[in-house]
C-alpha cells in the first residue's frame, strides 16, 4: 500500500479549478494533488511527496531541484501557496512578560500580532534547524519561526530572553 513508489516519468497539469493534476505514466489522472514536504523544517528541499486527495502517497520526489520544468515550478508554486510559517525578523513590542502575552512582530510577510498562550509554546529547534532556531505557536495555531535568535536585533533578543 505505501510501498515506495518507483520513480517514473510523470507529468503535472493544472485543471480549470487551479488544482494540480498528476498524470501517471500509464495515463491515469489523479485530480487535486497536494505536494507535501517530508522535512518541512530541517530539509525543505528534499523529500517531497505528492499526495492524493485521500492522503495516499502517489509520488515521492527525492529532490525538488532534480525535477524537470514545468513540474518543479508548479510544485514550488503550490507549496508556497499552502505553507504559512511566517519568519519573525523583529519583535517590536510585547504587552506583558507574563503569559498570555500579545506580541507585535515584524515578519517576512509583514507586521502582525500574535498571542502567546504560555512559554511552553516556544519550542527550541536546535536539533532540526541549528542552535538559535525557535518555533512559536500562537493561540490560533499559526507557527512563527525564528531562524536564528542571535541574529535578531538587541531589543528583540532582550524581549525573547524573558520568555525562554
Amino acid at each position: 500500500m505505501s510501498r515506495r513508489p518507483i520513480f517514473r516519468p510523470f507529468s503535472l497539469e493544472r485543471n480549470a479549478f487551479g488544482r494540480l493534476v498528476l498524470v501517471a505514466p500509464d495515463g491515469t489522472r489523479h485530480e487535486n494533488i497536494i505536494p507535501v514536504r517530508a522535512f518541512a523544517l530541517s530539509a525543505p528541499e528534499t523529500g517531497i511527496a505528492l499526495m492524493s486527495a485521500e492522503s495516499k502517497e502517489l509520488q515521492w520526489i527525492e529532490r525538488l531541484a532534480d525535477l524537470p520544468e514545468p513540474a518543479q515550478g508548479m510544485i514550488a508554486e503550490e507549496l508556497a501557496k499552502r505553507e504559512f510559517t511566517p519568519v519573525i525578523r523583529r519583535i517590536i513590542a510585547v504587552s506583558s512578560f507574563a503569559t498570555p502575552s500579545t506580541w507585535t512582530v515584524d515578519t517576512d510577510r509583514g507586521q502582525t500580532t500574535l498571542i502567546l498562550k504560555s512559554e511552553e509554546d516556544i519550542r527550541r529547534l536546535q536539533e532540526t534547524m541549528g542552535p538559535g532556531a525557535l518555533m512559536i505557536a500562537d493561540s490560533q495555531g499559526i507557527h512563527f519561526l525564528i531562524r536564528d535568535r542571535t541574529a535578531l536585533d538587541l531589543l528583540s533578543q532582550r524581549i525573547l530572553k524573558r520568555f525562554l
Binding site: V36, G47, S55
Partner: peptide, 22 residues
C-alpha cells in the same frame, strides 16, 4: 528514516502532520 517509516506504514500519516517528519 523515511524507509523505516514506510515499512512501518507510518509514512503517510506522518506526511499529514503540519511539518511532516519535523
Amino acid at each position: 528514516i523515511v524507509a523505516a517509516a514506510r515499512a512501518a506504514h507510518a509514512h503517510e500519516f506522518i506526511l499529514r502532520q503540519p511539518f511532516g517528519y519535523d
